[in-house]
Design a binder for these strands. Structure first.
Lengths: 239, 239
DNA sequence: CGCGACTGAACCGGTTTCGGACCAATTCCC
DNA sequence: GGGAATTGGTCCGAAACCGGTTCAGTCGCG
């Protein structure tokens, strides 16, 4: 991790060199969970003497950390870590995957995929399209291997997600993919993935790719919606 | 490495031999990341004594480095490295937060929130609504404390997300919240959070809550869409 | 000698850091 | 309940430090 880069991101405004050192030191301790989430960190006066700087300098650093929602301060009480090092997917409940039903999953896909496809059609470069084409070729090469097919499908969707050039959107979709992998749905799907059905999907993805490659936004979006409805039907049929 | 060539490139104008040596020495340290990007380099006086030359010579060298956009100087503060050894390529696997622009974030919110609100209105229990009401009360108690307000806002959205009863959707939204926290957008927003604007938002959230509580799906969804459009305007105005 | 490069020093105005005092909120403990 | 201790919030002035500027002096070389 480039500390300098982290600093740049954390700081925003220009700040004294000593303050920057303190910011980096504290943020490092928080990231490393030396100061775990939701715990109180040492008092400003303690930190000042520990770090060998004045309290005002510590306070300036804490100002920055607070403005970044990394800590939260309460007068008379202390400063508390609010930063979550790893996007807390497994939370108080069980893992998300275990509690996400196939329907839940399809709902989220229904929300994300149309807009995702729209943005991808708009933002994908020729290079991206070429890359996507290769995945399509891989998909079309499959005959009966359901495992290979699912892997290819995943790759296809991932590339579309990246093609949006929206990292956050891509991450959301990645989350959906992972939940899908970890849930029982995969096993369920595999039962349905007969060679006949694989062929069917291949044709669909081919159509989708053509719409994307020809920059036909509306067709691509409509197609993915249609595809989702089909999936939904399938789920309701066999759930 | 062709020092002569480097010198030639850096110098442009003719410069004293000693100055050239200092330029080369400093540039070498910067390239080798002994002085990493965005860090302050030693003071002119320190450099002068370290390199065994006068401060004026150091300054002449720094003049050249500054004119080449390798460093940037701030009176009273210091000289800072702006040179990037690796012209930062957008790295796919870097932290999502670092690569997500405020617009990206708003786009994802625009995708998730309307459906999220719709599902929440349908699925929230009376107990959930009561809980949401408490958060609203907390929001309405805020007068000027922007930090507290943002924290409350977050809680409100989180409760709505949970209210969908779709763990995957809630996790996606959680991802968005965290990216927002960790990106520079928060600081940006806080500038706009005048007491006047806080009051404005309070009224909006009150309206939203009433729509949700009365199970008025369409009003709630339309309202959140409107809210998002407003946020978008704000971003474009002041970005 | 003259000229340009370099030196050393002083001074300026700005920024940053420091140390401390005082307040208000919270917590602790009797 | 109440006072003491602790914590963050605020403010201030002094001191240290920084780059910006100027200038008289020194050195080396043509």
């Amino acid at each position: 991790m480039t500390d300098a880069l982290t600093s740049q991101i954390l700081t925003g405004h220009s700040v004294g060199a000593t303050v920057q050192v303190v910011i980096d030191a504290l943020f490092a301790r928080i990231k490393s969970e030396e100061y775990p989430a939701d715990t109180r960190l040492p008092s400003e006066r303690t930190l000042a003497s520990d770090l060998g700087v004045s309290r005002n300098t510590v306070r300036e650093a804490l100002d920055v950390l607070e403005s970044r929602n990394i800590i939260r301060r309460r007068a008379g009480s202390g400063s508390f870590v609010t930063y979550r090092s790893e996007p807390e997917i497994p939370r108080g409940d069980r893992s998300v995957a275990e509690n996400t039903s196939p329907l839940d999953h399809l709902v989220v896909r229904g929300i994300l995929e149309p807009e995702m496809v729209r943005l991808a059609v708009i933002n994908m470069t020729p290079r991206d399209l070429e890359d996507l084409g290769e995945t399509l070729t891989r998909i079309e090469a499959v005959r009966t291997d359901a495992v290979e097919f699912v892997a290819c499908e995943e790759e296809l969707y991932r590339k579309i997600a990246k093609g949006t050039r929206n990292p956050l959107l891509a991450s959301c979709y990645e989350l959906a993919i992972q939940v899908c992998q970890q849930s029982f749905r995969t096993a369920l799907m595999r039962r349905h993935l007969t060679p006949r059905r694989i062929q069917d999907y291949q044709q669909r993805y081919n159509t989708l790719f053509n719409a994307i490659a020809s920059r036909d936004v509306e067709s691509a979006v409509e197609f993915i919606k249609l595809h989702l409805v089909e999936e939904q039907k399938l789920l309701l049929q066999e759930g």
